[in-house]
Write a protein that binds this DNA or RNA. Structure first.
Lengths: 156, 156
DNA sequence: ATGCGTGCAAATGTTTTGCATTTTG
DNA sequence: CAAAATGCAAAACATTTGCACGCAT
């Protein structure tokens, strides 16, 4: 409720919410949540799995998917479909803090985050006109990044 | 070249462009292009495959993917990642005609199109600020549609 | 006839499911 | 101790690739 939605705060708040909902506080889930809370941008399930393993934690990739599915369904993480065949995940901060969208380089595959208030306002307005009860939105800009742009080939 | 970018026109123009590029005018590709040209909104590769088969055409799903890959690479169709694990495809009309984005019902899975000029303007502005050479963008609004919204359950 | 484009089948990669076992409350 | 979570392996999907053959040019 406070304005103190720190990078670390998300993981703690999420674990607390899960406990409050009657879930147990055990290994894999906590590990995934804490890892996500430490990240700056979106990760794939495989990346999460690899990092946990690299950190010595013995988890199954199925658990990673199960935790992500649950967190996503309950609104703690957002699924991001950059379009490379794998879904990415990132924390959703309370109060819309750190809300952002993504910029993908078609050439080198790099993913960056960006935020823009005017874009958010435009989205909010459209959302009101749709007739849907809009729960969230996703914006992906695709193109060539600063390094790749100069030598982008147009065809083939 | 004319302003006559009709629903039918896209398929014809696309086939013509392909011929001009030295490609052959043969079975599967033509079938996929014509089917896409007849559709109102985005389709999955599987849906395209099924519809072609249902229409008596003997195509392989690999060809469908190959054609879609080529059309997408050459800028004739757009890949859409709604986020359900499968990519969708739809025609890109010349001159940005019929440019739109998508509205997805989390409950029943329905996908609708919407367009909004102000949103496009906001996107254009952000795109200029990114430092990327932005080639395209994707916006997906997720929520509950008119039929599903009234009985949406908040949790589990 | 030449070779691009195709269909089929097998390979690849991602995500999900079944089940026995461990862990938490 | 009972129920929830987990890890592993297998299954289910989505997409890509290898290859021999057929069809436009």
């Amino acid at each position: 409720m406070s304005a103190a939605t720190e990078t670390t705060g998300w993981a703690e708040a999420t674990i607390a919410s899960l406990l409050a909902r009657g879930h147990r506080n055990s290994g894999a889930r906590r590990a995934v949540v804490e890892l996500l809370g430490r990240q700056r941008c979106c990760l794939t399930a495989q990346e999460i799995f690899d990092q946990l393993r690299a950190g010595g934690r013995r988890v199954g990739i199925a658990s990673v998917y199960r935790v992500l599915e649950q967190l996503s369904k309950d609104g703690y993480v957002q699924r991001i479909d950059i379009g490379a065949g794998t879904t990415r995940f990132e924390p959703i901060y309370a109060g819309g803090e750190h809300h952002h969208h993504h910029l993908v380089c078609d050439d080198c595959g790099k993913v960056e985050a960006f935020a823009d208030d005017q874009l958010e306002r435009a989205l909010l307005q459209v959302e009101g006109r749709t007739g849907y009860s809009v729960a969230g939105h996703d914006v992906v800009l695709r193109g060539a990044c600063r390094e790749c742009a100069p030598r982008t080939r147009t065809s083939s």
